[in-house]
Amino acid sequence: MHFTLRIWRQKNAQDQGHFETYEVHDISPDASFLEMLDVLNERLLKEGKDPVAFDHDCREGICGSCGIFINGRAHGPLRNITTCRLYMRHFQDGETITIEPFRAKPFPVIKDLVVDRSALDRIIQRGGYISVNAGSAPDANAIPIPKPAADRAFDYATCIGCGACVAACKNASAMLFTAAKVSHLALLPQGQPERRERVKQMVMQMDMEGFGHCSNTGACAVECPAKIPLTAIAQLQRDYIWANLTPDPYTR
């Protein structure tokens, strides 16, 4: 197959950045999108040119490293998939493909298609965990958890932290990301002691990082490779309202 690629090139965070156009030929329809970029980069290297920088690692859709805005969509034209699991057979032969980095204020571009997503880690630092030290846990079966609760918590826990929800959202909101973690822990008995404070703190950090508000368009869930459902956001909302509206029963 043959493609015309319009790729965003930006030397570093300070650079203005611009589009450059490349032609790639003889691409196998079974090549993944990243492998197609590999082919382009091999050629650029041989020509002594700077290859296109992009994040990637596991290339099987679980590490959350890759993330490219392709033809107007986060992770490309398919739903619920990572860039590394997008294959060239999903494009038309001869098509022009527009390739941009994920864009959001909290995701500054590092180079070309690589952005800094550490803001997501800082949201987790505000409470996306259960405070337990190694060694202090009771027997694993000491607390039974209803299977449906465990299953549902699992659905929310599968977030891979790729940032596609932010990239797809018109307001660059990190609600689906934050809500996935809040909901995962809210559904488990282990998560209860810190539940009120967790949701307040994580929402505050989300705002401080410069992510936008959620307007329930649902674009995030369509692009989410982990298929985190929108009910996560409802859960966060519920917990947040509850935590702020009801008096904390433990304060004197």
Partner: peptide, 8 residues
């Protein structure tokens, strides 16, 4: 430990 951490 992992169960206490909330691993589903």
């Amino acid at each position: 430990h992992c169960v206490a951490q909330g691993i589903p």
